[in-house]
């Protein structure tokens, strides 16, 4: 197969990894204020459920960005300069969120924690929404001239299709986070997370269904139809499993739903990487935006050797922290090595 096509697939794999993993920690951050009162142990339980993993989850984004820079320089250049303002807001959000996780507990002061809670909420909800807006626009295409410079205004980026995309990712990640919380915590947070899952599902299921159908009808090739169906089934099945308190199954089905949805988006985009609505001839494609074969070959070897290794040790870290987080774990009451939660 053509190396550029392989790298298109590799980059979609990185985005799948990012949305599956950071998707739930965005969701946890968004729902955290609803998991307990101000200053409560319950909020700490929610935050600590993603504590050991959120940072490595975010590296999937950095790797996707770096891989795009290396494999499709023109795509990276046009996309990042063309989506300047949404990316700027995402950066601000990620800065505040990362610092908030680390600093929130470092002062015993309820006003201090309240402000960091706000940062965690904004820092999680804003990127969850904006990634949907960005990806919907990428699939739909933007105004772009013959020099591959995006000429779309900020208002153009907030078109109905993109807003639906944003609503989809925001609600879907919230649902994903709720399911994760009910799987990874115990006590009152687990109960509230289940309730939150059922409530967010009322938005996420119709929004995702509408967005994926719109995507499929307007941009999708025939082969992504089964994926749309799979995403819908997995999503509905996930909600049903959450309702039936089968938390592990629910989480697995949510992962499947996000996976199928992201493949649908990338499948609908292919062979373009950034279509131009000004003139289809100006579109950036897998062929005209990619690096030369030498770079792609080197990158392929690096990815083949190191990506499995990353999956191995990242998977191990999830195994180490497999136990449910409870109020007692975060306050350190019953912690003993080897037997503690």
């Amino acid at each position: 197969m053509d190396l550029a096509v392989i790298w298109f697939i590799a980059i979609s794999v990185l985005w799948i990894g990012y949305f599956v993993l950071e998707g739930f920690d965005f969701g946890v951050g968004t729902l955290m204020p609803f998991m307990g009162k101000r200053d409560s142990v319950d909020r700490r339980v929610a935050i600590n459920s993603i504590g050991p993993v959120w940072d490595a989850n975010e590296v999937w984004l950095i790797t996707a960005g770096g891989a795009t820079f290396a494999a499709f320089p023109a795509w990276y250049a046009s996309l990042f300069s063309g989506f300047y303002v949404p990316l700027f807001i995402i950066l601000v959000a990620l800065i505040l969120r990362g610092v908030a996780f680390e600093y929130r507990g470092k002062r015993d002061d309820s006003t201090w924690r309240l402000w960091w809670d706000r940062a965690i909420f904004f820092g999680s909800a804003a990127p969850a929404l904006l990634w949907g807006v960005v990806f919907a626009n990428v699939v739909r295409g933007v105004a772009m001239d013959g020099d591959q410079i995006v000429t779309a205004s900020l208002a153009d980026l907030f078109n109905p299709y993109a807003l639906l995309g944003g609503l989809t990712t925001l609600s879907l990640f919230a649902l994903h986070g709720a399911v994760f919380l009910s799987l990874k915590t115990d006590g009152p947070v687990r109960t509230r997370a289940r309730a939150a899952a059922l409530r967010t599902a009322c938005v996420a299921v119709p929004a995702a269904a509408a967005f994926l159908l719109w995507t499929q009808l307007a941009h999708g090739p025939a082969w992504t139809w089964p994926l749309v169906a799979l995403a819908a089934l997995a999503l509905v099945g996930g909600v049903a499993a959450a309702r039936a308190r089968r938390e592990g199954t629910a989480f697995g089905l949510m992962v499947a739903a996000i996976l199928a949805a992201v493949i649908t988006l990338f499948g609908s985009l292919f062979p373009n990487v950034l279509p131009s609505t000004t003139d289809p001839a100006f579109s950036l494609t897998v062929e005209n935006a990619s690096s030369a074969d030498y770079t792609l070959t080197i990158m392929t070897w690096v990815a083949v050797v190191f990506l499995p290794l990353v999956l191995l040790y990242q998977g191990w870290s999830y195994w180490v922290f497999r136990r449910r987080v409870t109020g007692a774990t975060v306050t350190g009451e019953t912690v003993t090595r080897g037997s503690g939660a």
């Binding site: 490595a56 690096s291 080197i298 690096v302 040790y313």
Partner: peptide, 25 residues
């Protein structure tokens, strides 16, 4: 991008994942 992007992508894949996973651990 063809030249400069490669070390950046390697940095993420070889170093950032290592650093961020094990700092959590």
């Amino acid at each position: 991008g063809d030249v400069f992007g490669a070390p950046l992508a390697m940095e993420a894949l070889l170093a950032f994942f290592l650093e961020s996973t094990f700092i959590g651990l």
